[in-house]
Lab assay of single mutants.
Amino acid sequence: LTVQLGNLEWHFDNPEQALKMAEELAKRYQLKVEIDNGTLKFK
């Protein structure tokens, strides 16, 4: 699973870790998370 923020990307083997990080980033920057083809992206 990949977490993508702008041109930064983090790759996780563990989806739970990816979701946890995505939630933290979304909270911190007040963004919405969307999943696009196995990639978590922020809007």
Rank of each mutant, 00 (worst) to 15 (best):
A22H: 01
E34L: 13
H11C: 10
D36H: 13
D36Q: 11
V33I: 15
G38M: 06
N7Y: 12
E9K: 15
Q30F: 11
L8V: 09
F42H: 01
A26P: 00
V3A: 03
L5E: 01
T39N: 05
E16T: 11
E16A: 13
V3H: 02
E34Q: 09
L5T: 03
E9P: 03
F42R: 01
A26T: 04
L5C: 12
G38A: 06
L40E: 00
E16V: 13
F42I: 14
E23S: 11
T39H: 07
H11L: 05
E24K: 14
G6C: 15
K20W: 08
T39F: 13
G38K: 07
K41V: 11
N7D: 10
V3M: 06
K43F: 14
K27Y: 08
N7P: 11
W10T: 01
A22D: 00
N7H: 13
L25S: 00
F42P: 01
N14Q: 07
R28A: 05
V3G: 02
A26G: 05
L19E: 04
T39Q: 07
Q4F: 07
N7Q: 12
D36R: 10
A18D: 00
L31Q: 01
Q4E: 05
L5W: 15
Y29R: 02
F42Y: 03
Q4K: 13
G6V: 04
T2Q: 04
R28V: 05
Q17K: 11
E16R: 12
D36P: 01
K41Q: 05
F42M: 10
A22L: 07
Q30N: 15
Q30R: 11
I35N: 10
E24G: 11
E9G: 04
T2M: 08
T39W: 10
L40S: 00
A22K: 01
P15F: 14
G38R: 08
N7K: 14
V33D: 00
E24P: 02
K27F: 10
A26K: 04
Q17I: 11
Q4Y: 08
Q17V: 11
D13M: 08
A22Q: 01
E9I: 15
K32S: 12
T2S: 07
L1E: 02
V33G: 02
E34W: 15
R28C: 13
L40Q: 01
E34R: 06
A18H: 01
K20R: 13
G6L: 06
L19F: 14
A22S: 04
Y29C: 12
Q30M: 11
L19W: 15
R28S: 03
G6Q: 04
V33W: 15
K20L: 10
W10S: 01
N37I: 04
I35R: 10
E16N: 10
D13K: 12
L19T: 05
A22G: 04
E23R: 14
H11G: 02
N14D: 14
Q30L: 08
L5M: 07
Q4V: 14
R28P: 00
E34S: 09
E24N: 12
H11N: 05
E16S: 10
T39L: 10
